[in-house]
Design a protein around this nucleic acid. Sequence first.
RNA 1: CGGGGCGUGGCGCAGCCUGGAUAGCGCGUCUGACUGGGGGUCAGAAGGUCGGAGGUUCAAAUCCUCUCGCCCCGACCA
Length: 588
Amino acid sequence: MRWTQTLIPTMKETPEGAEIPSHILMLRSGLISQVMAGAYTYMPLGLRALRKAERIVREEMDAAGAVELLMPALTPISLWEQTGRVEAFGDVLIQFSVRRQNRKVQMALGPTHEEVITDLVSRYVSSYRQMPVILYQIQTKFRNEERPRFGVLRTSEFLMKDAYSFNASVESLDESYDKMYDAYCKIFDRCGIEYLSVEAESGPIGGDASHEFMIPAENGEDTIAYCPACGYAANLERAEVGEHGSRMPDVPMEELQDVATPDAGTIAQVCEMLDCKPEQMIKTLVYMADDKPLVVLLRGDREANEGKIRRAAGAERLALAEPDIIEKVTGAPVGFAGPIGLATDVPILVDRDLLEVRNAITGANKSDTHTKGVNLDRDCKIAADRYADLRNVAAGDPCPRCGQKMVLRNAIEVGHVFKLGTKYSESLSARFLDDKEQLNPIIMGCYGIGVNRIVAGLIENNHDKFGIIWPVSLAPYEVLLVPMKVGDEATMQLADTLYDELKAAGVDVLIDDRDARAGVKFKDADLIGIPLRIVLGPRGLKEGKLEIKWRWESEAEMIDLEGAAATIAEMIGEERNSSACFQARPRN
RNA sequence: CGGGGCGUGGCGCAGCCUGGAUAGCGCGUCUGACUGGGGGUCAGAAGGUCGGAGGUUCAAAUCCUCUCGCCCCGACCA
């Protein structure tokens, strides 16, 4: 492609509103252009990168035995009603009605396609002999995000590869899952992405049934817990706090004592007023677990993990109680709840951290009053089985596998594999006859990849102060040919010849044929980040040489003009398959 | 949904508090000349309903009210 023929509107300055590197660089290098909050045009250069990612995904899906199809983005609302996901998605589901003659048709833009594919499979798959089968598509998804942000990382319209496996047995599901898991590793490896696969919430099947593929990145919206010692990694919802045995401090128990804490209803306020630390406090939360109140005790500096609490309580639904319920349960205004002397008899769950707190401070269940010298073992007599891991992992917590210290990292979720079980096949009657002539719901798995996030996530971690650094596998073009003097006929003739030869050799080449100064071309070259830059200038041409430079190297090298196309094609060929050169570069 | 910020030629900004002349600067764009290895120089030019509506005033980019849009933090996220 010739630069003067395509549209690459590079920008010298950062547009207002872009804050994170991938967003800034995608705008500045003319990859994308915003249409509205959460919706972007992919410009020619951006589209090429997106297509490369898509192609890698497609190739690896095919290689893993998945079969591509294409479902419509337009879906009938009835499907979503059958699985109860109209409510589950809420406002995220983009729905509308259209008039057709004398009736109204209610539809939704697909935010994902479990319903559509399960409905499809229910019509055509009815025997265990037809399974396993894995179907996938690469298609635009629509979700009315509450808050689109970070450029292409969180949008209301995005490109997703979604695959679904249909299996006759749990063992077969496991096999499909493993195939997809392995394919994902290959995909992200080929994209040159540094990623972690982390354990995620596993839903109905439980166990090892869900993994997220995460790109550790400063600006990631998700948080993962990671153990550098043994490699354990899980997202924050799922990560367990390892046990390190009770270490109750060996200090004498103080007497219970009420202290006045007027208007101090938060941990921070109480700490300031009583000059204590959050670690000394007991945070008392009132939840509604399946419409019944539940009191949860945590150390003052800890964050509740509602998933863990819900499971420990054996409840289906869990939400913080409304203020009127809290007042009824505790007999005090919100902010002064404590485990001792609750107004009503409600079940209590306690986080294990509190096995290590002596002489704690907590709400007195009286307005403007806290109690000091609280010792749960003495003052509350809570059964041992009411103690559990109920909180989010914090940095430095022991790893549940090896006990070493874990670290927390922000990350971008780029892929998710999930054993679904029979949730959708049951509600949509996708059943099959097994070899014993028994009717069973099909066992499903689903596997998603955010294609846009591959591109944005890669850029987020692979750039320098000058611009993007693409691996050959995702780069919009593999080679950028830069003739120094467009006005000089001899130079341009050589450039055009080399351009044609490279194209003929199957190299994706962009020629910067603009009549611009060297500085402009070099700056743009660095900004758009094409992996291999070839400069044809008077310097080298005199000696029959031209200059080549990998975007991630600091020095250029000279190669012979004679046979240059073949040399370059070979270099690109190697890098295309291994990304060795890209991955070996020093990261910033 | 709660909190904060911003809308002024294509892009980035100043002007607004304290109302007043033709709305200014840098980049980009166009024409011409010189130039030609890291965003050049000179000369000239085009391009703006100051997000929109209403109001106050002799007079509004500037003050007031409403509204639309965008961004950030938090909540939420199958």
